[in-house]
Design a protein around this nucleic acid. Structure first.
Lengths: 175, 175
DNA sequence: CGGATGTCAGTTCAACTGAAATCC
DNA sequence: CGGATTTCAGTTGAACTGACATCC
């Protein structure tokens, strides 16, 4: 959590958007709307990751490591091939190696050879890992994931709007 | 732009949300909605930053450096104190130093002492900086900022929803 | 003086590239 | 064999902390 300067008396993103529109008019405010949406998403991500990481710090994990731990804890056997972890969390193979390295060093996960594929490795959640997931999740829940400003239908709207972006980016096949 | 694996046949964020709700029910799907919204925002930011940075690479700037350049180009005198840059872009003072360092090394900005404050430094956009802004902006516009999946009213909805998050985080004083 | 401004050194983290070993 | 899985070494970028000199 960064040090908090006094808040501005205006919305800097909205003001920037206005300058944009003044200099790049046309298309019924498309540029204005685009710039506001893009910078809002960037800023929202920053706010959320800072808050969630701060909440998770006492448990020794970052949000991305926590995500991996949750995925394992919800898997049928408490284990998944590293390739599956990367697929589900949509992160690069080298990032998976790094995330599992850190979780393993913290004793929350261990590696095992995949009995069904000699090339592969399984990440297996440990008892301590399950304990951390439970406590960390309770913490995030009580902080309402940093989303207290929005009600549940609003959260669903955000998901739906951003889902279209993800589909277009090729994250998954739209049904 | 990362290497593209074949897309999944399902939405991994939606599936993760379902697992969450099965394990943490209650509050009418609040946990489900929260997890989907948070991970959607994280992923949307990743998609956008990768796309915008790739579009801007030929011009020798990242999106955050481009943002600083745009801010200067729209300022009355083509210059701003570094402190103002940090305030408007909502980045840390040390990050401002770094961004301006890079832009200065690329010849797009130069530093000048602030005549109105002996402690301060002005970042001044150069002619080459203005040229890069114009060309880079045209590029982003023709790529529609990576937001082609959404129409203009949808972009306004995203801004409005995320604005509440930013207000609560203390980014600026709500009117 | 207290407080603001900017820089410097160093850390952490995420994400990437390219190369390699191993096994299907 | 081609292709998938994972690791390793190294790079970049963003963001942070703590300390410091400078000046209002």
């Amino acid at each position: 959590v960064p040090s908090h300067p006094p808040p501005l008396e205006f919305d800097p993103i909205d003001r920037a958007g206005q300058l944009w529109e003044a200099n790049w008019p046309g298309e019924d405010g498309r540029v204005y709307a685009s710039m506001r949406a893009v910078t809002s998403i960037m800023r929202a991500q920053q706010i959320l990751i800072a808050e969630l990481d701060a909440l998770l710090r006492p448990y020794g994990v970052t949000f991305s490591r926590y995500e991996a731990l949750v995925l394992l804890s919800y898997s049928r056997e408490g284990s998944l091939p590293l390739s599956k972890v990367g697929e589900r969390l949509q992160v690069h193979a080298t990032s998976v190696t790094n995330v599992i390295d850190r979780l393993e060093a913290a004793g929350l996960v261990r590696r095992e050879p995949n009995p069904r594929d000699g090339r592969g490795t399984l990440a297996v959640i440990t008892a301590e890992g399950r304990d951390v997931v439970a406590k960390a999740t309770a913490e995030l829940n009580s902080a309402r994931f940093g989303l207290d400003a929005l009600d549940t239908p609003d959260l669903a709207r955000i998901f739906e709007l951003l889902r279209r972006l993800r589909v277009e980016a090729g994250d998954f096949a739209a049904e």
